[in-house]
Amino acid sequence: MTNSVEISLNGEPSSIVAGLSLQQALELWEFTSKKVAVAINGDFVPRSLYDNTQLSAKDQIDVVTPVGGG
C-alpha cells in the first residue's frame, strides 16, 4: 500500500502520494499551463525550485493564474 499525505490545494483538502516533488504534483493536478505561480505555506516558490521541492503533510499549496483585476 502506498503511503499518502494530506495537503491543502487552493484551500481544498487533497491526498497525494508521499514523496512527490512539487513538479510531479503540478503535473498530477494537470496544471499544465505555464501561466501559474505557486506558494507553499504562504511562501513563494520559484519555478526553478519545483523539481527540488518535496511536498509534506499539511502543506498548504496555492496555485494561481492570471485573472482580470482592477
Binding site: 496555485v63 485573472v67 483585476g69
Partner: peptide
C-alpha cells in the same frame, strides 16, 4: 491592471 487568483485546472 490585472490580478492573480487560485484556479483549478
Amino acid at each position: 491592471t490585472l490580478g492573480l487568483r487560485r484556479q483549478n485546472p
